[in-house]
Nucleic acid binder design. Structure first.
Length: 516
DNA sequence: CTAGGGTTAG
C-alpha cells in the first residue's frame, strides 16, 4: 500500500533528477557472497550488542584500527541480514563518514535487507537517495525489490515496479527493458506460485515480446509447480501451435510436473504416473529431442519416492546402455533410494562405483547414509562415517550432516555426544544455522533443561538468527510452567531490545530463501 | 539469481 501511495511522487522526482545527472546502466551485478572477514565480524558484533550504535562505533573502530572500506561495508551488511534496523543505522553512520563512498552494491544490500521485512517504502526512499547522490541504480536494485514484493504476495506492485523501472534505467528504451528483463519477472512470479498472475501479464504483454521456448517453459514450470498439469499441457500445446520447437528443458519441466504431481503411495497411482511419464518420453523421442541426464534423473526420483530400488537400478542400467553418463544428482537419488530401503551395503557398493566413474560424492550423498543410521538408531554406524569425514579422507560434513547427527543424538538422549558434535560444528565453521539452534533448543526443552535452552535461544538472537514461532512458544510455556519467571523476563527484555515479536503479523516475515 | 533434475531441517 505504501509503495502504491508513494510511487507517483517518487517517479515524478526521478523524472526531474534525470535532467541533471546522467548515469549509465550497469551490467547485471548480483549481491556479493558472505566472505570471512574478522573486521566485519567485529563490526557487526559491536552493532548487534550496543543499543545505540552511533556512540560506540567511532571509538571502537579507532580502538581496533579498522577503517571502513566498501568491502567491509558489504560484508557488514551481509552479517546484519536479520537486523534491518541496525543495518539502517549503520548505513546512516557510513553515509556521514567523509572519504567513504557508498556504492551501488551497498545500497542494493540495504534495499534487500529492508524489503525482507517489508519496509518497501524505506527502500524506495533509498532508491531516490541513490539518484540524488549519483549512485547508479541498476537492474539488480529493482529486481531485489520486485522479488521481495512478490514473495510478500504484492504481485501488483511488483508488476508496476517492473513496468515503470525503465524510467530509472537510463540509456535503455522501454521496449528493450521488457525484452531483456521480462524473464526475471515471469520466472519469479512462477517460482513463488503466482502463475495465474504471470499468465495474465504474459497474455497482456505478448505483443511486445519475442515469444520463444524459454518464456513458455517458465510458464509451464509455473503451472506444474501449482500442480495444474492440465494448464501446463495447454501451454505446451500453445508453444507447438506457435510453431516453436520445444527443447529438452521444456520436456523435462513437463515431465517433472507429471512425476511429482501426486502422492505415490497407493500403488495404482504410481503405475499411472509411470505410464504418463513414458508417454512424454516417447513424444520427445518422436520429435527428435533426446532425453538427457535430467530426464532420467526425474524418473529415478519417482522410483526413489515410491521406494522401488529394483526399478531404480534397472533404469540406471538402461541409461548407461544408452550412453548417458549418470552424474552426482542421478547417483544421489539412487543411493537415497537404497539407503531409505535399508540396503546400506548396496548403497555403499554404488558409492564405490560412482567414485570409480569419476563422480565425487558430496556431503549430501553421505547424508543419505546418516539419515538411515538415524532411522535405525545406529549411533555407532553414524559415528564411524562421521569420523571418516572429520579425518578428511572424504568430503567434510555440511550443516545438514551436523543437523541430522544432532537430531539423532538428541532424540536418543545422548546429550554429551550432541554437545561434542555441536563443538565440532562450530570449529568447522559450517554452522550452526537456524535449524541447528532450533533442534538443539527443542532437544533441551524436551529434557526440560529450560535454562540451557534459554541460553542457546539468547545466543541465536545475538548471532542474528530469527527463532521460529514454535521455538519461542515452547520455551515460553516451559519457563512459565517451571515457574522461572525471572529468566523469562530477562529473555523478554532481550527480545524487546531487538524489536523481535512473535505476533501473527510476524509470520509474513518468514520469506522463502533464495534459489541458488 | 534470464527456463529443468538430487541432497537438509523443524
Amino acid at each position: 500500500m505504501l509503495v502504491r501511495l508513494g510511487f507517483r511522487s517518487l517517479l515524478f522526482t526521478k523524472l526531474h533528477i534525470r535532467f541533471f545527472c546522467s548515469s549509465q546502466l550497469h551490467p547485471m551485478a548480483s549481491l556479493p557472497e558472505l566472505e570471512p572477514s574478522n573486521d566485519a565480524d567485529l563490526i557487526s558484533q559491536l552493532l548487534l550488542q550496543h543499543h545505540n550504535p552511533f556512540h560506540s562505533m567511532e571509538s571502537s573502530l579507532q580502538l581496533h584500527g579498522i577503517s571502513l572500506t566498501p568491502f567491509l561495508i558489504h560484508q557488514t551488511f551481509l552479517r546484519l541480514k536479520h537486523s534491518s534496523k541496525i543495518a539502517l543505522s549503520f548505513f546512516h553512520y557510513s553515509l556521514n563518514c567523509p572519504h567513504l563512498h557508498l556504492d551501488t552494491t551497498a545500497f542494493n544490500l540495504l534495499i534487500d535487507n529492508l524489503c525482507k521485512v517489508r519496509q518497501f517504502d524505506v527502500a524506495w526512499q533509498l532508491i531516490i537517495q541513490m539518484d540524488q547522490k549519483s549512485v547508479k541504480t541498476n537492474f539488480t536494485t529493482f529486481y531485489l525489490l520486485i522479488r521481495r514484493l512478490i514473495s510478500a504476495g504484492l504481485t501488483r506492485q511488483a508488476i508496476r515496479t517492473f513496468s515503470e523501472m525503465h524510467v530509472f534505467l537510463d540509456e535503455q528504451s522501454e521496449d528493450q527493458v521488457w525484452k531483456d528483463y521480462f524473464y526475471y519477472l515471469l520466472d519469479t512470479l512462477c517460482k513463488y506460485g503466482y502463475v495465474k498472475v504471470a499468465t495474465e501479464v504474459f497474455n497482456k504483454e505478448k505483443w511486445r515480446l519475442e515469444l520463444n521456448c524459454k518464456l513458455y517453459t517458465i510458464l509451464i514450470y509455473g503451472w506444474c509447480k501449482v500442480k495444474n498439469i492440465e494448464m501446463a499441457r495447454r501451454f505446451f500445446g500453445e508453444l507447438l501451435d506457435k510453431g516453436i520447437d520445444p527443447n529438452v528443458v521444456s520436456y523435462n519441466v513437463l515431465l517433472n510436473g507429471i512425476c511429482r504431481r501426486a502422492s505415490l503411495h497407493p500403488n495404482g497411482r504410481f503405475d499411472k504416473v509411470i505410464r504418463d511419464a513414458e508417454k512424454v518420453f516417447d513424444e520427445m523421442c518422436e520429435r527428435g529431442v533426446e532425453p538427457d541426464v535430467t530426464s532420467y534423473s526425474i524418473l529415478l526420483h519417482v522410483y526413489t519416492r515410491a521406494h522401488k530400488p529394483e526399478l531404480s537400478l534397472e533404469k540406471l542400467r538402461i541409461m548407461r546402455r544408452k550412453g548417458i553418463c549418470p552424474n552426482i544428482v542421478t547417483y544421489t537419488s539412487v543411493i537415497k533410494c537404497l539407503c531409505s530401503c535399508g540396503r546400506i551395503e548396496d548403497a555403499e557398493l554404488l558409492l564405490e562405483q560412482m567414485v570409480s566413474n569419476g563422480v565425487t560424492p558430496t556431503s549430501a550423498t553421505y547424508n543419505c547414509f546418516f539419515k538411515e543410521f538415524k532411522g535405525r538408531k545406529d549411533v555407532d554406524g553414524a559415528l564411524r562415517l562421521y569420523g571418516k569425514m572429520m579425518q578428511g579422507s572424504l568430503c567434510s560434513p555440511s550443516v545438514s550432516t551436523f543437523n541430522i547427527l544432532l537430531g539423532m543424538l538428541l532424540k536418543l538422549g545422548r546429550i554429551g555426544l550432541a554437545r561434542d558434535i555441536w563443538d565440532d560444528m562450530k570449529d568447522s565453521g559450517a554452522g550452526p544455522d537456524l535449524d541447528s539452534y532450533t533442534l538443539l533448543i527443542h532437544g533441551f526443552c524436551e529434557k526440560q533443561k529450560w535454562k540451557t535452552a534459554c541460553e542457546f535461544f539468547m545466543e541465536m538472537i545475538e548471532k542474528g538468527f530469527l527463532p521460529q514461532k514454535v521455538t519461542f512458544e515452547t520455551l515460553y510455556r516451559g519457563l512459565i510452567q517451571a515457574n522461572m519467571l525471572r529468566t523469562w523476563r530477562r529473555l523478554k527484555k532481550r527480545l524487546d531490545e531487538e524489536s523481535i515479536t512473535f505476533g501473527s503479523e510476524f509470520e509474513t516475515y518468514h520469506l522463502k530463501p533464495y534459489r541458488r
